[in-house]
Amino acid sequence: MLAKYVARRFFASIVVVLGVTLITLVLMDRTRGTYVPGIDLNPALRPEDIARLRADLGLDRPFYIWYITWIWGVLHGDFGRSMIDGSTVMSHILDRLPNTLELTGTAILIGVLISIPVGVIGALRHGSKTDHTMTVVSVAGFAVPQFWMGLILILIFSVTLEQHGLPWLPSSGAYSAVNGGDFIDRVEHLILPATVLSFFYTSTWSRFIRSSMLEVLSQDYIRTARAKGMSERRVVYLHGLRNALIPLVTLIGLELPGLVSGGLVVEVVFGWPGIGKLAFERALQYDYTTVMGVTFFATMLVIAGNLLADLLYGVLDPRIRFA
């Protein structure tokens, strides 16, 4: 049953992947004009150089030929080479992935650790002052533009502190140029971007947990459990929380593609060398291969995220059966 379900989802997702990559390619191809990726206004370039580089990149062929060639490569595990720098697309992705995972993973972890207690407390004492305060903070967190918050944090914790000779936090990059591997150094660089990103996650998720906790606590089986004389603590944590976490699992599952694009703005503001920033920069430069590679990768994550969320949903909520 489950296997059949997964198989069906798998075939549906092939269609989605093809659709996504094709749309991306067509959009790039339609907007590129005659631009040859990697070409600047460099007076040393001659017209014939530009024409030759275009041909070398295969850009003088129609896009569908290009697409078929690309798909053929992907089927053989070859994502091609960047049109800008000639490195393999896979090497770019693998270079950036750890940085992105470091940032997003940390932010998600912080988000989960803070939002669960905040959401539960909000639901248990709903209507109280604590609840109101937390609601206000999370509603505010939802409304702050990430890039602005990033700028303000840089202004305070990097520029201003440094100006006053106080200990400051680095504003850009994933680690210092010199002590690259140093754990403390990495943490220092992580603080500001992870704060911005997790603030957003925390705000969203704590609201969800609060709502679903409220909903669960009003369900019949909770009332039954209470009526049976189960301790309040057991009611809340065993029955209530378990069911209230279902939407959170879904949400985190849906956050998987956010590994690529969710942190993009934060990556750009903090110069974090992640996948989102890579894709953003390369899309602006029409690096077809890299953008297609990242798109493919990101789409797979979306599909996997959705599937994972659904499956976990089933595990956590026995009422759901896959058909």
Partner: peptide, 23 residues
Amino acid sequence: DQWIYKVLPDSVAVTNQLKTGEI
């Protein structure tokens, strides 16, 4: 011993890191 070329997001970051001594 070493010369390191570091890529920064924009000119603001260059300025900031010159000030802090990161570059």
